[in-house]
Design a protein around this nucleic acid. Structure first.
Lengths: 196, 196, 196, 196
DNA sequence: AGCTAATCGAGACGGTACGTCGCGTCTTGAC
DNA sequence: GTCAAGACGCGACGTACCGTCTCGATTAGCT
């Protein structure tokens, strides 16, 4: 029945974490990713530098947390039922999310992740995996017989083009694109289902 | 009629550029991307810092050049002719290239690019565009009637999953994957051709 | 009629003060004066920082106390009687004491005192004055007619060279030196006594 | 005929050293020794912190240099000729110098020196030795037969009381005191000369 | 041969941020 | 009220790179 045994000593002020997150996101929005320094975050949040370092080992960890507060509030909700309908809903929701501020954040996080493999792992496990799991659910529901490798492939075929546009091509992630990606994935599903 | 007007004064030592490139790549390989600093490159190459700055405005420009020396030696050449054959060859060649050191370099370049939009543009124009053009050639040859938007879509469908695995999933880019991506693209082509 | 009014609440653990003193002295011996920080003392003594601050306002106060425990155990007692004999005994005892660990401690205390005038006053009143009083006693016994200024002068003439060697010259305080200082002081006494 | 072979690279700006010295001394005078931090000196001098560290390994080294600029301008000049006259002049000059700002500086330097034996050595060699040498000269001239140990003793007998008052007793170093110290030293000289 | 001009090494320099240390104060719950 | 534990604001530490600068020493082509 113990709910984390209550660490000894003065407890951390939860408000500080919030302020740090806010400050980091604000800096990101206002002056770009490069302007996020521990120093600047501490200043802006009105918090001692040491307090930041006590809670987050690296800048990336802080940003990851800051991002969580944003993203966790917007989990995509695909209530679809028609065969390929939910795929389309998912594609559109994903593209829309990544078109806005969330896209900027994800680019920033990836910038960090490409410099530090460990951070990339963290990022995948804490954030990116959610969407992947959701998508896998859709596939599993409709094609229960696919093996793991095939599922992974389908997911990559679906998400790959979206992230490619987000990170590299910087091309629009509009509904038209979402629809095409979704329908292409449908075709791929069909192709995978037939030979079975 | 002399082309480059031949600047007055002592000419630049071409060897220095080579040494700088080498040093940058060595650092990348040995201690990771984060260890590449102008300071470190200069030290390692046995070159004065000023000499670096005289030739490259920013660190990214140096890395881009360093990369060019590597990549330009390995342009993929798909001489295929069968309908879907050349797509498959292209996919395999691309995956193989990105599986090796070239993949590491590309990750490093993207790390830089995600922090600086201008650099991303440079990177696209100087390097990534080559492969895209090559791929577009394949599509155009087989489906001459596609409009620009459709072409871009096909390219993104093809390259997206590969880069997604390279940058984010860190998943293997083996021949099996290449084949599936290629065949999926073929299906997409068929779907686009059938427009009715 | 209870003397110390016996404060309410849990009484202080006397053992803690001892452990703090010990820790401070150990640190001084092992890693030098600079390594004595409240933080380090608390750690080493296995005591909470707050406990230190509750008992000693400043680091110097702690060190002063730690020193007291050492020094108070070794008060020099010259029971001599011959005219200049007791001066010689005093000089030798003083030099011997300051040659050992007690000298190191005194140097540490002076380091502190030179940075904080108030602490210097404390140090003089609580420790250094003892020896001075003792020495003054010797002088007064033999030359009862000297005025205050002359007494102070004699004391300074006697102790000055010893402390000078301890603090600045870092020169040996051996018996030979003690004897010379004592005999010089004797001469000075004679000089002061004559003109009267 | 080479006069220091001229180091490679951009030469150091001598003005910076001067400004740093000035800043350190100003801080010492205005806010006390404790206020001298590398950070503060850099700020005040309008100099980058790194520039300080490039020239002085430790804060103490900087202060030592700063002090040199002050002290080197005031070398005591005893042109005396009467037997004990020059000793008296020397004592008075020394006391007067140490009574003013120079005394404060010396106290600060000693505070540092008591924390770092190496610095104490530096301090002795670069500054304190000058006065000692001068004083030794006086003794040698008048008592050419004294051995080294005796000379050292005389010096310590003379300077000890003065430094003792400066550092520990914080007592006035007026002419009266200087005279007494000098005359006492004269007596000591006589005592040493006779037994031979 | 002398002149002009850019290059090169070396390293100083003003900055900004880093991540750490110690200060002295505070806030918990347990005793 | 004391205690262990540890958070907290603060100020300084000494270091790393940044991009620029100032030196003396080359190293060419053009008089």
């Amino acid at each position: 029945m113990n709910e984390t045994p209550r660490a000894a000593g003065r407890p951390r002020n939860a408000e500080h974490s919030r302020k740090a997150h806010q400050a980091a996101l604000d800096l990101l929005r206002e002056h770009g990713y490069a302007s996020i320094s521990m120093e600047a975050v501490a200043d802006r949040a009105g918090i001692a530098k040491q307090t930041l370092y006590r809670r987050w080992k690296h800048k990336s960890a802080l940003i990851l947390d800051a991002f969580a507060e944003q993203a966790d509030q917007l989990p995509t909700l695909p209530p679809a039922e028609t065969p390929g309908e939910d795929l389309l809903v998912f594609a559109r929701a994903t593209c829309r999310t990544l078109s806005g501020e969330c896209g900027t954040l994800n680019r920033a996080l990836m910038a960090e992740a490409l410099q530090s493999p460990e951070f990339l792992v963290d990022l995948r496990e804490r954030h990116l995996s959610k969407r992947r799991r959701q998508l896998r659910g859709i596939f599993v529901r409709q094609l229960p017989d696919l093996d793991e490798r095939q599922l992974e492939l389908l997911i990559d075929l679906m998400l790959g083009p979206i992230w490619y546009r987000l990170l590299i091509q910087n091309a629009p992630l509009d509904d038209a694109f979402a629809d095409l990606v979704a329908s292409n994935t449908l075709v791929a599903m069909a192709a995978l289902a037939r030979p079975a």
